[in-house]
Computed example of a mutant assay.
Amino acid sequence: MNTRRFTALIAVVAAERVLELMVSNRNLRWSEAHGGKEFGAGHYPVMVALHSALLAGSLLEARRRRPRPVFGWAMAAVVLAAQGLRWWCIRTLGRQWNTRVVVVPGAARVVDGPYRRLPHPNYVAVVAEGAALPLVGGAWITAVVFTLANAALLRTRIRVENEALQGLT
């Protein structure tokens, strides 16, 4: 994939992130109005920075190094599949979906859609996209750095979510 197309892909993913944040903020307001409590707020700024760095790092590395993409179109297909899974998760969770960990008292734990088979399917999408997106443009250093940093962050995030959700049925 050439640099212009890769830049367009990064722009589309960035726009998708803005849309996610809009949905998340709407859901956060609803959750707060229904007594929702946030857990693990301390790691949220790190998560935002890491995901922003993924987009910026992918673009900068691809432009600077002009590496030759390996499996670029295959990785683009992984990115597209990850987006599909992410939005399936968002749709399944409805108002309970958020980029933060917010639990509404009395809300039932969602076990439909992709949650029927996986406890944290959204993170499957995050991991797949985080590894594949930089590789579309040949930015393998960004892919490796994001994957390692994301693994550490997800350990914390999943622990926080599991602890927060223990009270739900």
Rank of each mutant, 00 (worst) to 15 (best):
L154A: 03
A125K: 11
L55M: 12
V46M: 04
L93R: 10
R4D: 14
I10L: 06
V18W: 07
E61W: 02
L21R: 04
V126D: 02
E32R: 15
N122V: 01
V101R: 00
G84M: 07
T169Q: 13
L55I: 12
H120T: 09
E16S: 14
T169E: 13
A143G: 06
T142Y: 08
D112L: 10
T7W: 05
H51F: 06
P105L: 01
E16Q: 15
V103I: 15
R155H: 11
E163G: 03
M75P: 09
A11W: 02
S52Y: 04
E129D: 09
A132W: 11
K37T: 14
T142P: 08
G138M: 02
I10H: 01
L133F: 05
A8M: 11
I141L: 15
Q83T: 03
A14T: 11
W97K: 09
V46F: 04
N27E: 03
A128H: 05
V102N: 04
R5E: 14
Y44M: 03
R29P: 00
A11Y: 02
A41T: 09
E20C: 09
A149M: 15
V46I: 14
V126Q: 08
T7R: 11
F6S: 13
R68C: 04
R86C: 06
L154R: 06
A139Y: 04
T169K: 10
L168V: 14
A82Y: 09
E32D: 12
L19S: 09
N150G: 00
R100H: 11
G113M: 01
A76Y: 05
A132R: 10
L154G: 04
R100D: 07
L59W: 12
K37V: 15
F146M: 10
P105F: 00
Y115E: 07
M47G: 10
L133S: 05
W87Y: 15
S31R: 10
R95I: 07
R65V: 15
L19D: 07
L54I: 14
R63I: 12
A151R: 11
W30K: 07
T169M: 08
A8F: 08
P119E: 13
A77R: 06
R66F: 10
N98H: 03
A107E: 12
A131W: 14
R4S: 13
W73F: 09
V127S: 04
A8P: 07
R91T: 03
P69T: 01
L153R: 06
A53T: 10
P45L: 02
N2M: 05
G42E: 10
P121N: 01
P45W: 00
V110G: 05
R157Q: 12
A143H: 08
F39W: 12
V12T: 10
A108W: 00
A76P: 06
P134V: 09
W97T: 05
N2P: 08
V46H: 01
G138I: 02
P105N: 02
V101E: 06
F39S: 12
A149T: 06
P105V: 05
Q83S: 11
R157M: 04
A81D: 09
R116S: 14
N122T: 03
V111H: 13
G40H: 07
N150C: 08
R68V: 15
R26Y: 04
A131I: 14
F39L: 03
R65F: 13
G72S: 04
R4P: 11
C89I: 00
P67V: 02
R64Q: 09
A152L: 13
A139G: 10
G113H: 02
I10A: 06
A152E: 00
L55T: 03
I90V: 13
T92Y: 00
